[in-house]
């Protein structure tokens, strides 16, 4: 879990860097607009690709190990991830799942899903190699099931994104290898579009973890409903929840504003020599940046 989160942090930052760098590379080399420090952005893109090539496959590998750990320690969460209500063997892993009925979007059930699945895949994942393994269904637990739809879909979004990032990493490194990195506008657009998807994957991962563990706040020890402070009134809880949401929305807005400014200013001047600039552009970097800090 610790590794999975650490690695995802590096991976999401790599994606964000790649997205920003791809924007400037695209602007300069594909659209032909003047961009200061174009070479700097190419270098940034390359560093991000290296980070992505390392972290993206690793993320899926220990994600798989982690899923097995979840099956052993929190079987109810695992069942929710697979929307498995009845205990079964040879459980398939749906890569893409289509609900057969609109109601199944909000209430996915493994038996009633039409999808492209790996036969025995979920059993194989949980047991570490045995496609015949039995998986406990949600109905076999004494406690109420977590909100299955949320866990089921969040898990699929996270895993889907994880594989998309691997694809991106290999696509980009292939283009780099062929010397076509700055020309492939489709790749640039894919990176730009994926800038924030790393964060989305992290968030959906946390939804799987925290919603999936319900109704336990400490697995098998304490129920969430028992962990509420006895003196807490509904009004107080609502007030502070609104305060946290409002506060963080405000912080996000501020953060977005500040990051936009930083990106638009480009890299600051480095002491002891100018930043390596592209031969085509010889405008000096904006002076304001160095004064600012």
């Amino acid at each position: 879990m610790f590794l999975h989160m650490q690695n995802s942090a590096v991976e999401s930052v790599a994606l964000f860097m790649a997205g920003v760098a791809a924007y400037f590379v695209y602007k300069h080399y594909v659209r032909g607009d003047e961009v200061e420090n174009a070479a700097f952005w190419v270098k940034t893109l390359k560093i991000a690709i290296v980070a992505l090539v390392i972290t993206a496959p690793l993320q899926v590998i220990h994600g798989d190990l982690y899923a097995r750990h979840v099956y052993e320690t929190q079987p109810q969460k695992f069942a929710a991830m697979e929307a498995l209500w009845e205990t079964d063997t040879y459980v398939p892993e749906y890569i893409v799942a289509f609900p057969t009925d609109l109601s199944h979007i909000l209430d996915p059930r493994a038996k009633e899903l039409l999808g492209i699945g790996i036969p025995g895949g979920a059993s194989w994942l949980a047991s570490g190699g045995d496609p015949q393994a039995e998986i406990q269904g949600l109905n076999s637990f004494e406690t109420e099931a977590p909100p299955v739809a949320l866990v089921f879909w969040a898990f699929r979004i996270m895993v889907g994104l994880g594989f998309w990032f691997i694809l991106l990493a290999f696509w980009a490194s292939y283009r780099w290898y062929r010397g076509e990195l700055v020309e492939d506008d489709l790749l640039h657009k894919a990176f730009m579009g994926s800038s924030l998807l790393g964060i989305v994957a992290v968030e959906t991962g946390w939804i799987v973890t925290e919603v999936g563990r319900q109704p336990w706040v400490i697995q098998d020890v304490m129920l969430t409903e028992h962990s509420v402070s006895p003196g807490l009134t509904g009004a107080e809880a609502t007030f502070t929840l609104a305060g946290f949401v409002g506060g963080y929305v405000l912080l996000l807005a501020l953060y977005t504003y500040v990051i936009r400014r930083i990106i638009q200013h480009g890299p600051p001047e480095i002491e002891g020599g100018p930043v390596e600039t592209d031969a085509g552009t010889d405008t000096p970097p904006e002076a304001e940046v160095s004064v600012d800090d």
Partner: peptide, 12 residues
């Protein structure tokens, strides 16, 4: 637990 519940809004 008692202090943080009793003075919940103050902590916030």
């Amino acid at each position: 637990a008692n202090l943080f519940s009793r003075y919940y809004l103050l902590m916030f």
